[in-house]
Design a protein around this nucleic acid. Sequence first.
DNA 1: AACGCCGCCTGATCGC
DNA 2: TGCGATCAGGCGGCGT
Length: 282
Amino acid sequence: MPELPEVEILARHLRPLLRGRTIRSVDVRRVKILKPTSLRRFQKVLTGAKFTGLSRRGKYLLFGLEKSGKKILLLGHLGMTGKMFLALRNEKLPKHAAVVFDFGKANFIYEDTRYFGRMTLDLSAVEKLGPEPLDKKFSAAEFAENLKRSRQPIKVKLLDQSLVAGIGNIYAGEALFLAGISPRLSANRLNLAQVKKLHRAIRNVLTVAIKFGSTVPLKFLSGKSDGLFYFGRAAGTPDFYEERLRVYDRAGKPCANCGRPIKRIVQAARSTFYCPHCQNFH
DNA sequence: AACGCCGCCTGATCGC
DNA sequence: TGCGATCAGGCGGCGT
């Protein structure tokens, strides 16, 4: 599941590939993912528009475009299974291609097996996001203030995108392990020292994940081979962040710190992995 | 207004 | 062996 680091890696990959490309036509193969933008408006606004920039906010991609001097913002989200990539026009479209932008000799494809993602002109989702965790504006003081108002388990609260943007199931668990905090502890029960530790751990985990190429290899975020557009580190190289995960998907395996088995529990219908010994309740 | 629960989707896995 | 049932999971919407 793509989280902040994965989306950041993808944004860096796509930015130079998209810049200057003009959309000749827009093929929407699954209208649902445009919601709440209508198919008619989506096609009308984007046909003839030129990509000018690409940034990231939380787990969202913000595509900047321009058309007859007018600026357009297009929002993308990968959901659970989304991928975005360029492919030659004569290549066969993937089974679950949702949106295809025609660039001429190449296509820009957004495909999404489960269709949980989005490609839309509606920006309201981004306006509701909390601070960027790697931004200076993400302060421990404000973080502490917001945690005080919640009685949810801290792991569940970290998934709330209005608290901090971009954290998902994997990095929530990793940050809590690094901070030595139990995922089951109520958000409002963290003391100031723990909040500061967690604040630091979040930034650390995300920064290192980006540096090491994120948990999900780029090839899974941007299509199979990406053909001649393939970039960066070769798929399968041993330095993907996945191999550095301390707790995620490691149930029964030894804790990197104490050697005792990592435990799996379910919180808010999602898997949580943690070390009951190193992450105590206080 | 914080919070829990449902629905959206498909593919992988499970049980018989 | 084959097939239906179950599960996973980010997030918006809705009811309390």
